[in-house]
Design a protein around this nucleic acid. Structure first.
Lengths: 210, 210
DNA sequence: GTCTATAAGAAGATAGAC
DNA sequence: GTCTATCTTCTTATAGAC
């Protein structure tokens, strides 16, 4: 009752520090200090610093796979999802797009985790895999699936769906990277994403049935 | 004659290590070892580890500003450049685009420096500024200037030039990030960039005078 | 589960011989 | 300019009292 869950708090505070300073830039004492305990106490919960890092990676990967499974991001879009998107207009595309962007941008945990992966990707193979999977492969595969449905329905010009998916997603990725580096650019980035999606719709759906 | 320039070699080897392990992940002894001297000898060339890092940042920023100045990346495109691009066809756009991408991707020094900035951006303000300037602001401003000329000349649809610039550049940025993380994706990324530019041309220049 | 104390080693930097 | 030797501090991790 007194303490929520020290083991979880350690992971949260560690991620908070890793997301800025990287694994090597954080001392076990720093994590312990953030939690409000001494470094030695921390070893009652985890084997060591590497164990903490690995647990963050493992837990978040689990959480992600659950979500991805529900959304059908893994591979082809499901029949159910296709039906769901069949009624989508340009306006809802803009709304859905910005909402997804907002989530990626403002969800505190998602942001920290993305930053940590960004820092660690070149020296840690697991981090590299998660980074490319979550921020590149999956969004593109998912968006491609949606656009394939759009094209079949004649809502969208008959172009390569994957290229269209990258045209839709990569500006969001770039703005995410920008805002992660300079949070003061968030308002203009958000406004820009709206312009982007609007122009995207014009280019890809002009003259099409909406 | 015997040694090219120890002071420069130190910077090169340090960058090589920083680009993978980050500043905190590299010991002064590691750098010295890569150079082929002892750690203590290194202090005859630089004040310390931070000095080495700062010198890499400073030297590369200088080199970049020189290049940017010549290309007129800073702000508006020059009259001379506008004239240069006025004769550009879709084919040359594809070629110029892929060439620029190839340079960013395969230039050894550019790649290492980009990786180092990627790692250090969240805890180092100077790194953050250089990162956003070199890989976001400048390419977009530069590409916008070119597209403004295209639009004036009626070569391109009358859309927002900045959004078009991001549509052109952001897929390259995403593929750069991908290849920096997983170099094995280079061949497919290169092929994809060709598809991207082709589709971009169709969307933005279809029905226009070429 | 948290603390103090402490071991054992790594890391940044300096002094001084050659 | 490079070396060996050394200093000091930081860092991970363990032992054992409470």
């Amino acid at each position: 009752m007194e303490k929520k869950d020290t083991k979880q708090i350690i992971l949260d505070e560690a991620l908070d520090l890793f997301a800025v300073n990287g694994y090597d830039g954080v001392a076990v004492a720093d994590i312990a200090n953030a939690v409000g305990i001494k470094a030695s106490s921390l070893y009652k919960h985890y084997k060591g610093k590497q164990d903490i890092f690995d647990c963050i990676l493992e837990k978040t990967a689990e959480r992600y796979n659950e979500m991805a499974g529900r959304l059908g991001i893994d591979g082809n879009i499901s029949e159910r999802d296709a039906a769901q998107y069949s009624g989508m207009s340009t306006e809802t595309l803009v709304e859905t797009g910005t909402a997804l962007f907002m989530y990626f941008l403002h969800d505190d945990y998602a942001r920290k985790f993305r930053r940590m992966l960004t820092i660690e990707q070149y020296k840690n193979e697991a981090a590299s895999k998660l980074y490319t999977e979550q921020y590149m492969d999956s969004p593109i595969v998912y968006q491609s699936s949606i656009f394939k449905v759009f094209i079949e329905q004649g809502k969208m010009k008959n172009v390569d769906a994957k290229v269209a998916a990258v045209h839709f997603y990569s500006p969001m990725f770039l703005m995410l990277c920008l805002c992660d580096s300079c949070p003061e650019h968030e308002p203009s980035a958000l406004e820009f994403i709206r312009q982007h999606i609007t122009q995207f719709s014009k280019l890809y759906m002009e003259g099409k049935i909406l």
